[in-house]
Design a protein around this nucleic acid. Structure first.
Lengths: 212, 212
DNA sequence: CTGAATCTCACCCAATTTGGGGGGATTTAA
DNA sequence: TTAAATCCCCCCAAATTGGGTGAGATTCAG
């Protein structure tokens, strides 16, 4: 037992592929300052031991036997929120990326990275960053951007924006300094353009097509 | 004129600090494969020339005399959407970051980076990435994550989630396979917990505190 | 200059939604 | 064994919503 232990970055792995898992263990343990405390091939076993392992960083696969990685991230964050979780997977699917981040992942790497990237990523997340593969970062940033081919006018977009925040027609009228009847007209036009017949449908379609 | 020109990355700068701007110009032009086509100290001049300059990448400051960078990004994307815009600024303010990304920025760097990072960032964005400083990446990723100290139960959160998508009580009831009256009870409890008295207030507060 | 689009406001109507009040049953976790 | 969470029921009045029709003003591109 040495005082160096206090500066060690403790790592857990959750990865079902034996080859990859053992490869990561070796790669990481070769590194000064890293210590792989445990390596699991499924979430269930990991979750039983996480409070014992007390990892600083968890490298988590998504496709796993039994509980999947997304669920695994959520549960980990509930019982041991201190851990920083980096997803390491082959999937670059939009949905999966956002679900993982919403669940509490602090980074997202795809397995086609150079192995040295994994080392950097762990240092990055411990240094307050959010390591992501290039394509993933682009996905994430693009998710903030709106559709530039919106059929809606800017005023209509403004109205729909407020509607999506739960405002009533009267609220919106006040907010935009126009008459309630004008708001109604705008909304009728929005419904016509989006081919919908209710608030919920309009918001759903607008979200989906990134109009708001 | 050589065929190498077709592979050159053409860069525009918009930065009001003369020292920094000239420094960037020198740094970038030293690099094989980069060509600074123009450097401006304000957005207005840049916007007049962007269609002529045809830049691949724009390095844009936020704090500028006249039109600010956010507005500048929006307008650039409207008249020359092809350009990739990287924000380079001293501000790490949450609001500014998200406004910039929503406006169409493809990357966000803070000025305390090593100058070599700028070179990498340009290559990164041209390679389909989204270069961000460490702290910015963390901000962006954190924006997906919910508050873990929510006063709302999971069912209540679920109800509020659907309410925020414009669903009516009846819609929500159908979606969750419960009675409309039950939905009403949940919503009453949500209002009580959040100390609000309407849908709009509840959604606003929930968004602000990242409960949904 | 003209026509399309946008933004603005008005009035009609009926069905639905919403918010507030009350009460009660069951399960589950502390 | 409390407290919380989840579920369901009733009453009521005000507000909201969606649909219809019409119309003046402005802006903007062809």
């Amino acid at each position: 037992m040495s005082y160096q232990n206090t500066n060690l970055i403790k790592i857990c792995l959750v990865e079902d592929d034996n080859i990859i898992r053992e490869g990561f263990v070796m790669l990481l343990n070769e590194n000064q300052g890293f210590k792989v405390v445990s390596a699991y091939n499924n979430c269930e076993d990991f979750l039983k031991n996480v409070q014992n392992d007390k990892p600083n960083v968890v490298l988590m696969d998504i496709e796993l036997p039994g509980m999947n990685g997304i669920e695994g991230i959520e549960r980990t964050k509930k019982i041991y929120p201190h851990a920083q979780i980096i997803v390491v997977t082959v999937y670059e699917n939009d949905d999966l990326v956002f679900k993982a981040l919403c669940a509490g992942a602090g980074g997202y790497l795809t397995k086609n990275m150079p192995s040295q990237r994994l080392i950097e990523a762990i240092r990055e997340i411990m240094g307050g960053g959010a390591p992501m593969s290039t394509n993933i970062a682009r996905l994430v940033v693009a998710s903030f951007q709106k559709n530039h081919n919106s059929p809606l006018s800017s005023r209509e977009t403004e109205v729909l924006e407020l509607l999506s925040r739960g405002k009533s027609y009267s609220n919106i009228a006040e907010g935009l300094f126009i008459d309630k009847e004008t708001v109604r007209t705008h909304i009728k036009n929005i419904y016509w353009k989006l081919e919908v017949h209710s608030k919920a449908e309009a918001i759903e379609k607008a979200m989906k097509e990134k109009l708001i």
